[in-house]
């Protein structure tokens, strides 16, 4: 997967990813407000295949899965951060949205062209000619990520009645 980087700082919380007062809206309408409190232009400029890059503790706060759903709805291909809040991390992988821990995420700047292999844990920054290592997704979750998320995995495991 390859696309542009949209860069944010530390502690991006779920209230800015999916504002509570808009949570009644259908997913595609809610997604238009994703990150608006910190970057009003984000939702209208991000393109399918682009990446969200951030610092520490991305997705802290509420368990609301709409935070990850909104990014996926906008076509974000993966989130790369130096750290993730636990529930967001689980939510993203459950939805088939790769969330990659990358200690060097701070070297990526807005607009950089990235090529990302979430399975190998490799990020190539074509703009800066750098290759960054992401922490591999834990092995017990890799099947789920490959399947495209938890619902797809449950289906494959014959959980359907």
């Amino acid at each position: 997967m390859s696309g542009r980087a949209f860069v944010f700082g530390d502690n991006i919380d779920t209230d800015v990813l999916a504002p509570g007062y808009l949570m009644k809206l259908p997913a595609d309408e809610l997604a238009r407000h994703c990150l608006a409190a910190v970057d009003p232009a984000f939702a209208s400029t991000v393109q399918p295949g682009d990446f969200v890059v951030a610092g520490a503790n991305f997705g802290l706060g509420s368990s609301r899965e709409q935070a990850a759903v909104s990014l996926k709805t906008l076509g974000v291909a993966a989130v790369i951060a130096t750290g993730f809040a636990r529930i967001f991390y689980r939510n993203a992988l459950n939805l088939g949205l790769p969330a990659l821990f990358c200690d060097a995420a701070g070297s990526i700047e807005a607009g950089d062209r990235l090529e990302v292999d979430p399975v190998a844990g490799q990020i190539i920054n074509h703009t800066r000619n750098q290759t960054l290592a992401a922490r591999p997704i834990p092995a017990h979750l890799m099947d789920m990520v490959r399947a495209g998320g938890l619902v797809a995995q449950l289906k494959a495991r014959g959980m359907a009645a």
């Binding site: 368990s63 609301r64 899965e65 990850a68 689980r90 939805l95 938890l150 619902v151």
Partner: peptide
Amino acid sequence: FGATDMLG
């Protein structure tokens, strides 16, 4: 947990 985890 988020909604899909809870579904599981």
